[in-house]
């Protein structure tokens, strides 16, 4: 296994065991090939790699949004591969938070309604969830815009709402697929500051993907993948289409 710091830890938060993911689009395409990896609680980990390297696929598999063709994934020692669609939804609801490249807020809901939606699904009473959603928006600096709908927010503001939504239900890990890809460098830096702050102050675990060196430089651990396999950082640097 090649990763950013590779230090020995106790029970991993997430364990990826010999995972392979193949897509059939006429011909068989292998997105991940026998990849094994561990993530630990409190990490601020970046998955680095060029486009098509398998970053999003890996995040989707960790996030139980997709199932591996072979291999297994464990969250806190519990195997999640093989669970039903309903069980996986429940699992994501309780334990995972997501931030997407395209923000993916629900357009008909306001910022605070988007933020509180995971708690709506959890059945949290309305007053409590509203208070928690406002608190989450306050922590991302958007309390004043809580009642605006996504189309009345800038890209950076929408992504901040997405961050608030990803953490409001107190997940064990937040998975972010290229969260800064659609943002300008200043806004991207501010978002990373925010995510890093949540990581250091609240101990929230982040796993995010990127191929932007400026973003990767903020991570406390960087996992490099290429062609669906883990690669040594030095190999990644040497690769013609790799990242710095």
């Amino acid at each position: 296994m090649f990763d950013g710091d590779g230090g020995a830890r106790t029970t991993p938060l997430i364990e990826v065991r010999r995972v392979t993911k193949e897509y059939k689009t006429g011909t068989k395409v292998s997105a991940l090939s026998g990849l094994s990896l561990e993530f630990h609680s409190g990490e601020f980990t970046a998955i680095a790699g060029p486009s098509g390297s398998g970053k999003s696929t890996l995040l989707n598999l960790i996030g139980t949004l997709d199932a591996p063709t072979h291999g297994e994934i464990l969250h806190q020692g519990r195997k999640v591969t093989g669970l039903s669609a309903e069980e996986l939804a429940d699992f994501r609801l309780r334990h995972l938070g997501f931030i997407f490249q395209a923000y993916n807020l629900i357009p008909v809901l306001s910022a605070v309604e988007n933020t509180e939606y995971p708690m709506v699904l959890q059945g949290v009473p309305a007053p409590e969830r509203r208070a928690r959603a406002m608190e989450a928006l306050r922590s991302v600096g958007l309390e004043a815009l809580a009642h605006r709908r996504p189309d009345a927010l800038s890209g950076g503001q929408q992504q901040r709402v997405a961050v608030a939504r990803s953490m409001v239900h107190r997940p064990m890990v937040v998975l972010a697929d290229e969260p800064t890809a659609n943002l300008d460098s200043k806004t991207a830096a501010a978002l990373l500051d925010l995510m890093h702050g949540l990581n250091t102050e609240h101990g929230l675990t982040f796993i995010f993907s990127s191929h932007d060196p400026a973003v990767l430089s903020r991570a406390t651990r960087v996992v490099h993948i290429r062609d669906g396999r883990l690669v040594d950082p030095s190999e990644a640097h040497a690769a013609p289409d790799g990242v710095a």
């Binding site: 996030g63 949004l65 669609a85 309903e86 939804a89 429940d90 994501r92 609801l93 309780r94 995972l96 938070g97 997501f98 997407f100 993916n104 629900i106 357009p107 939606y117 995971p118 699904l121 959890q122 939504r165 239900h169």
Partner: peptide
């Protein structure tokens, strides 16, 4: 379709 994907990602069950 994408929005349903988001709802499912944040924990909405298929039956929901």
């Amino acid at each position: 379709v994408r929005e349903f994907g988001v709802l499912m990602a944040i924990g909405a069950r298929p039956s929901w």
